[in-house]
Design a binder for these strands. Structure first.
Lengths: 188, 188
DNA sequence: CTTGTCTATGCAACGAGTTGCATAGAAAGA
DNA sequence: TCTTTCTATGCAACTCGTTGCATAGACAAG
């Protein structure tokens, strides 16, 4: 039930509408927490009626008005309480691992194409992360001289580094998978 | 909807009861697909009534009887069809990443303890994987001389190697996270 | 001028996943 | 002896997540 908290964090980083949140969940946040716009609107509605977040109607020109949400004190308190709870173990759902083990009862070679396509997706994701790292975390860094390090920035960066490490590991493993699949069907 | 297929693969590797499947989902399979016994019993019931799997009542002594399932032809066909579908992108839910970014609005240092505990869990999991690798995938390997390589064995091994790579990457990243958190609160 | 895309929000229905509880006999340990 | 643990299956209620559809104005491309 941490979608609530993911949304709160995102709204603390930057207030926004349900639509804007949905786009963030397609981009940055979506790489460690997926959610559709339906889920987001439903949770926003519930958190609003619970007083966790405030709304502000923002009229716009050339496009529909939007409802911009920001975190209220009770929402911040709820987030803080959650942050102090033990970390839940990740829930994992890897279709690919199931398919690889299933391929033993079908045609292993038939998986090769799909794994190659899947590898492409991860290669693009890594490129995207690396571009984001260059864009957001290099350059005007004010290494340490005046003031404290920007905690938010540092923490966002370490999460991004996690994403990068994950994609690199995945690409290496997928090469291993491809070599294994080829090894099982050398003649074709 | 791949729980069906994860169960089919597991039953093809080794027929078993709902209870036995539930334990497999706590051990090996559970590291890339989580499921509770409730989910498993429900899916087994549905697959049985759809004719995907066969049941055999196995009387036992000293413990309750069990219903041992094995995959029937329609189940195998359904699995095969699924194997030829495109691979779904993984759905990810990393509480920890949310918490790290949330810590910017709370006390980053308070996370350190939890991350250390979390690191322990992953270190144990890695040790467990490595022990399994030694147990199941070294020794009497018949390197290539007579007959074809055992596809099932090779494919199980490459999935396990993926788990090992994931845990190693995670441990390295968690060290990075801890260093970052310490860097944000040097004085304590 | 029509089709498609983008912003923006939402309902309704369904399917997947979780939590709490229940039963019940056997064996092991306090 | 009593409690706990293990095997084994299941119901009921609930929450979470997904899919399909709907609205509606602005703008761009064909």
């Amino acid at each position: 039930m941490a979608l609530d908290h993911a949304i709160l964090v995102s709204l603390l980083e930057q207030p926004g509408s349900g639509y804007e949140l949905a786009r963030r969940f397609e981009r940055s946040i979506g790489y460690f927490w997926t959610a559709t716009h339906q889920q987001i609107y439903r949770v926003l509605k519930r958190m609003e009626s619970d007083g966790w977040i405030d709304v502000r109607e923002v009229p716009q020109q050339g496009r529909p008005d939007k409802r911009e949400y920001s975190v209220a004190a009770p929402g911040r308190a709820a987030l803080s309480a959650w942050l102090h709870e033990p970390i839940e173990p990740e829930s994992v759902r890897h279709d690919l691992a199931v398919k690889i083990r299933g391929a033993a009862f079908d045609d292993p070679a038939a998986l090769i194409r799909e794994v190659e396509r899947y590898r492409e997706v991860h290669a693009e994701r890594l490129a995207h992360y690396l571009a984001g790292e260059v864009r957001d975390f290099t350059g005007p860094e004010a290494p340490r001289a005046p003031g404290p390090p920007d905690a938010g920035r540092e923490l966002q960066h370490v999460v991004l580094r996690g994403g990068i490490a994950y994609e690199r590991m995945t690409l290496t493993w997928l090469d291993d998978v491809l070599a294994t699949l080829h090894g099982l069907a050398p003649e074709r």
